[in-house]
Design a protein around this nucleic acid. Sequence first.
DNA 1: TGTTAGCACTCTCTGTGGGTGAGTGCTAAC
DNA 2: GTTAGCACTCACCCACAGAGAGTGCTAACA
Lengths: 345, 345
Amino acid sequence: MDLNERKLRILQAIISDFIYSAEPVGSRTLSKKYDMGISPATIRNEMSDLEEMGFLTHPHTSAGRVPSDKAYRLYVDNLMKKYEVTEEEKKLIAEKLTSNVIEMEKTIQHAASLLSELTKLTAFAMTPKPETDRIRYIRLMPVDDATVILMIVADSGKVSNTALKISVPYNEEGLEIIAKTMTYNYKGKSITEALKLDIIKSFESDLEAMSRLAQNIMPNFLRTLESMLDVNLYMDGLTNIFSFPEYNDIDKAKVFLQMMDKKDYFRDILINRDNGVIITIGDENSDEVIKDCSLVTATYHVDGKLVGKIGVIGPKRMKYDEVTSIIEYITENLSNTFKLPGGSE
Amino acid sequence: MDLNERKLRILQAIISDFIYSAEPVGSRTLSKKYDMGISPATIRNEMSDLEEMGFLTHPHTSAGRVPSDKAYRLYVDNLMKKYEVTEEEKKLIAEKLTSNVIEMEKTIQHAASLLSELTKLTAFAMTPKPETDRIRYIRLMPVDDATVILMIVADSGKVSNTALKISVPYNEEGLEIIAKTMTYNYKGKSITEALKLDIIKSFESDLEAMSRLAQNIMPNFLRTLESMLDVNLYMDGLTNIFSFPEYNDIDKAKVFLQMMDKKDYFRDILINRDNGVIITIGDENSDEVIKDCSLVTATYHVDGKLVGKIGVIGPKRMKYDEVTSIIEYITENLSNTFKLPGGSE
DNA sequence: TGTTAGCACTCTCTGTGGGTGAGTGCTAAC
DNA sequence: GTTAGCACTCACCCACAGAGAGTGCTAACA
């Protein structure tokens, strides 16, 4: 059977209407509302064909038609018109994302909040996977007799610090020597490489006091490095799903929210997605629990290299045109904000 | 009318049963299950008295009795037995809270997660209000030609850093002089005091280059100080409310979750609560939206001074004995972990 | 006088069955 | 190929009856 122009027009109308109303679309409504110049009966015949071709389904015999995953895919790939981000939206995005950038993490959090506000969906943002981030330098600074602050600065601009409890006496020079030695050994190494390195020997030849101080510091240094590898996931607009009639069912809402609550689980889903703007619709999602959702994700860059993700999750009948344009625009802004050292945590 | 011993026993049984079952308690069930040695009819008479005294209510004529807020209050103040935190629970708390303390914020987050896990309620934890925290020192460290890291260390051990974009040429000595001058001026001042101070003049007398560098740095310094005043609120176990039959109603669940989603609103509720272990039951809560919840909060200390809050929110029929004991135990552990400089962000 | 058995009454909850309306699918005519 | 007509289907709403849990009152009992 042929997917001719009239069938496409009908399909498009059904998808638009269903995205808007969440109600199965009937032939009569269609012919009245969209003024297609053909009678309901003709539309019914076409609908029946479209159903046979797998683009429409039927919740039950006497209900209207509902687009299938295949239909949404066709819509996203071919039918959908490009949505232009409005000036108002652009202004809001610029305001929240570029000014006042004090911490990278805060900015990423704001991006999620903004995205959920603009799309009225549940949004999330993931900090970059810093595996390839390289160590720039390490500092040790005394606070008091028993406390030292360890600071690690990476190429991306990420800074991590930890207050260490030190059980041996020390002085500022000793700290400086250790920090310099560490910087010398770790500079230019990625965090994952650094974790494999064993430099504790470097200190053994020196004075014993120094060696003991270093032994006090190193385990904490490694733990701090490890924590730098953590990927944080922020969510916003969780309760937005309540505005969709498909989640008026308590069990559906419960399953959705419990899934989003398991951040580790959801993080894994995100990590395994490809880069760029990716849309997965319903059954296209490999994870059982989100098989009646659509997921739209995109990637932003930090320092031109590290890759973070941002996106939305919601019912399959989302406004794909708006959502993708807005996400694209936000990721561009984020990438610009995080371009090369500066403007980061 | 007198609240005699038998009435108390009946009331206690009703409260226990209702906390467990969430079903209105009838006279027959009570006499069978709790073996009180009196007949249902007698119990009915007593129940009727208890209702008149305001301790019980009636959802409708032919339903059993439900404890009123006044009954819960009596239970919490007088009837409830002290719950002993089990060895297992203690072990879990010790594991999650004392070991591996790299960042204060992470530990506080863990505390919330732990609390929700142990109580099966929605838990939250608020970082301390750092108004009285005092600045210990300020450092400026070069990253590259256009980036400098600003680091502020406070007495509590809290460390805040920001990467600044610098638009004028500079050298390490210049940074050090400015950092020393800033430390000299700000050391010992609380953050709120520091925000009111205007030290930009201190740099005017010096070389012009220095003055321009300082003018590059100061606005960002103030913004970083401001961000140090932020109080973070972490939540965990939001979806636990789905396990309570009283939230099987989609609208109830929605209202609850939307309320918790408005973090600023909820943060304000917490900030206004007194210190120590505080239980507020139903109508005792001044905020309309949580009038059918109970809120249990407690305070922990950082550096022996700063005060953070942690607690749970849930239906009025919560296991107050368990909840209060566990919260108390966790706050003790937190306060110990955060005792004086060390073990913090 | 306090306690208990008995009984009528109340109210929720569940299941059932008819009516309504939106929509389909088929057939026959245009 | 398109359309009008019509029988048929199915979800949804509503009313109604019966069951079950529980109360409140009364009268009898220790």
